[in-house]
Structure formats: C-alpha cells, structure tokens
Design a protein around this nucleic acid. Structure first.
Lengths: 172, 172
DNA sequence: AATAATTGTTATCGGGTATATCAAATATCG
DNA sequence: CGATATTTGATATACCCGATAACAATTATT
C-alpha cells in the first residue's frame, strides 16, 4: 500500500527541495566522494544552488527570483533599452525573455513602451512600483543575503571569491 | 519573410549555445551591470556555466556529462551500493536517477545486479568498460579541464577557491 | 523598389528537477 | 505468526529553463 504523508516523506521532501546530498546524520553511512570533492565544477554547482536558495529565502517577501532581480537591476541602471539589449547582456535568449517580461509587467514592476524611433522595439522602463520593489530587494539582498555570505566566508575571502568567479566568467 | 541561415544568425546561435552575455565587441554598446557584478550568486552561476561547458568540451571524446562522470566516480569509490544510496549522495532524486542509470547501462558502463540480501535493491557495479572509460575521463579532466582552471587562476587561488566553494556547499 | 536584416513573438523541443503513485520486497510490531 | 508500515526501484507527470525555427511588422541596405 501507499502512504503519502509520513515523517520520512517529509524529510525527503525538504531535502529534495534544497537539492542537497543526504549524508550528514542521514542513513547512507557516508559514502566516499573521492576525486569528486576536488572537482571544481562539482563544488561550484553545489555552492551555486545553495547561494540561490538563500537568495530566494532572503528576498521571499518580494517574490523575486535571482533572474527577475537581475532584470530589475539592469533596467534601473540602463534606462531606454529594448528587450534584445537587456536579454543579451543577461545571457537570456529573446524568446525566453518574453514570458519573463510578461510576468514582471503583469505585476506592474516594469512596462514596455513603443519606441518612436524604431517602431519594432519596446523600450523597457521600471514603473514606480518596480523602483520601490527594487529598492526593498536591494536592502534585503545586501543586509540578509550578502551579509550572510560575508559572515561565513570572511570579508577578505568574499572579495577574493568574487574576483576569481568574475575572472572565470570572463576569461574562461 | 524569414531567413534562417545568415551570418548574424550563426553568431547568435554560437553565443546562445554557450549561454553567455553578448557585450564584448558586440552590438549592445556595453550596458552597465551595476550592482550585478557584486552579486556573488550572479558570478557564481556564470562561472558554473563556463566551467561545465569546458568540462563537456574536454571530455567530449568520451561523451560524458558532469553528472554522469560523478556517478561513475562514485560507483568506483563505493562498490556494492544501491541506487538510492548513490542518488542521495549526489543530490539526485531516485525517480530521476532511473533514466540516468538506464543511459549508462545501455552503454555498458555500469550494471544493476540484484542483491541477494535485499531483493528490492539493485547493487550498482562498474563494468570493465565503465572502469576503462572512467580512467580515460579522469585523465582528460585532470590534464585538460582542471589544468586549464589552475592555469587561469593560479594554483594557490585554485585551491583557495575550491576550499571556499566547499565551505559554501556545506555550511550554507 | 526589391531584398535583407532586426524586433518581438509564438510554438515547440529537450534537459533537469520535483511530486505522486505503484508493485515488490522487507521491516516492524501487536 | 500475521497485519501494517516502510523501503526500493520504477512510471507517469509537471514545471522551469534553455534552445531552435518560424512568423509579422518594421527598418536597413542595395
């Protein structure tokens, strides 16, 4: 027979939600990772999932994903740009950016305005509400998310980590 | 009308394939990233994509993804384990691990053996071919992939980066 | 003016991740 | 012992993200 809501099911669910391995005091009696712990890509992926997870927690009151936050940030710093430009600088393909913008626009965080010069393109602008949400998001990210990262790593290490990751993201 | 294969289309395709932003000497005249470059999660994600991309290139002759490589590594270091144990330590949900194993088994890289103790579970073993492929993969990863990472970052930085990422993956 | 290219969009596909559920086998407990 | 609960592998399914092809409207090129 099948039982849906049990203690172990709940444990598995919360574990799966965070996509993290299950060794610490779990039931698998600690398998050997071997060369896996020396693989940079492996730790990179794991760390990225944890950091994104924490970002979502910290900014949960505003219901913003990392990708959405990055769009709002970019719109604020680069007014008067169209969809193609914003999508390109974020590495998002234009077709996939359409639904993203639809979601943000339906929440009145940004708006598409027809350009007078080029009637094909949509000039993207933050709404007043978008600016307000972005301001609150920035504070949450700085005071909760990044603050926790700096606390765990130490300020010097945090800066060094950021520099190395930026180098990898560029020159690699 | 629609034109499918043009010079700019090819440029966009290769760019999209690597999921990377399009500023350097592109056409968007360099948008301002703003606080985005200071967001650890942003650089983390970008770096992770680049590193995985390089991993795929380096190990392309063997047609192994990072996830498949990690499974083979784990099977080698932990013989006699079942699907649940291997999947859990890699943060893979059991339902999703089934198709992954099917693919590896269909290529004769590993095999499921019925356990005599517990006839529910499948003991996972590397085949001879699996061991051979893993050995070749290890060399490619070490001599091409990780070597390039160490070259770009410098040995000391590479070690420091690995340590910090491991700390984030655990304590965060 | 004819052709090519760009912009936003839709449809669609594939990969990764998540949940619910099932049959078979085992464990637990009255 | 026997009834119930749990575990294991598996299937089906759903969602999100990334990718490609194609299209109408508009603009650029020649």
């Amino acid at each position: 027979m099948t039982v849906s809501k049990t203690a172990s099911d709940a444990a598995r669910s919360s574990r799966a939600l965070r996509r993290e391995p299950v060794d610490p005091a779990g039931d698998d009696s600690m398998l050997q990772l071997g060369e896996l712990s020396g693989l940079l890509g492996y730790s990179l992926k794991r760390a990225q999932l944890k950091v994104f997870e924490d970002f979502l927690r910290c900014v949960a009151p505003l219901q913003l994903t990392p990708a959405q936050f990055s769009v709002l940030l970019l719109l604020d710093k680069n007014p008067g740009r169209n969809q193609t430009e914003i999508a390109n600088t974020l590495g998002i393909l234009r077709p996939n950016f359409v639904a993203m913008l639809d979601a943000l626009e339906s929440r009145d965080l940004c708006a598409r305005m027809r350009s007078t010069n080029d009637r094909r393109s949509h000039i993207l602008v933050l709404t007043d509400r978008g600016r307000a949400v972005l301001a609150r998001a920035k504070k949450l990210v700085a005071n909760k998310h990044e603050a926790r990262l700096i606390e765990v790593l130490g300020p010097a290490n945090h800066a060094a980590l950021l520099e190395m990751l930026a180098k990898l993201a560029q020159e690699f």
